[in-house]
Amino acid sequence: MMEDRAKTPTRFLLGATVPESALPWLGTLAAIALVDLAVRIGMLPAAFFPPPSVMFVTLGALLGTASFWHGLWDTLWTWAASLGAAAVLGIALGVGMGASRYLYASLRLVVEFLRPIPSVALIPAVILVIGVDFGSKIFLAAFAAFWPILIQTIYGMHDVEPQAMDTARAYGMPGRDRLLRVALPSASPYVGTGIRIGSAVALIIVVTMEIVVGIPGLGELILQARQGANVERTYALILAAGLLGMSLNLGFARLEARLLFWHPSHRKDTR
């Protein structure tokens, strides 16, 4: 991406020059226009594919309804609650397993066996035991988001430079400070990556529970729109779900860059 052509304008259709910063907009608009056209001239069946312009209009109309904001809120707060729980537990256990060889050895195989279980496989068990409510949604999403955070934290703890730890020890830093002020900061980019992956996973599980089980949220609205054969609304809500996912990703990337500006992996001159 760092090629030297980065700043030069690009020749576009008919020899007109456009700055490269406009390309993403042009590309997106062109794709939308193309699909729109394909539907309107009948290449794609309009019964299944509403023209993208109609999707945006429908989404705009949805923004004015209370049910949309209720659904969005239910998705968002359950996502945040489960990610928070997963982060607290994942980081705590990850730091423990990263710092103690004995804890690591005892739990390694357990983690190796539990991690690949597709968390959605637990949906029937969770709704039987906890019930069809927000609790089961939060539990399962937290369960799923827990693993990447745990694994990344362990990696991060194992990747702490031994010299840094030795230096701290040589200067007589007590164990608690070595953990909190040397190991943990050094592992923080890994933890950040874990939380970013965990956030995406938690959103996937939250939406899955809403769609498969019918717990209130954006996913349930999609389910209802589909069951009511309201094609435009189905697409508009899926569009909203994608935009939500995108903003969460972007938000985390920004947050990470802001919080970890001091870490070598985020410093400008090393990037």
């Binding site: 090629e3 052509r5 690009t10 490269e20 390309l23 993403p24 907009w25 042009l26 590309g27 997106t28 062109a30 794709a31 299944f48 594919f49 995406a200 959103l203 996937i204 939250v206 939406v207 899955t208 769609i211 498969v212 954006l218 996913g219 999609i222 389910l223 729109a225 589909r226 094609v231 189905t234 697409y235 809500l237 899926i238 779900a241 994608g242 935009l243 996912g245 995108m246 969460l248 990703n249």
Partner: peptide, 30 residues
Amino acid sequence: SRRARIATAPLVEFFRALPPPALLPLTILV
């Protein structure tokens, strides 16, 4: 292709961020 990549980046980003189960009702529909 650098230009194609930049032009399609938002679309790829969008579909990558879309929670996959949201597509389930869609494929059932279509």
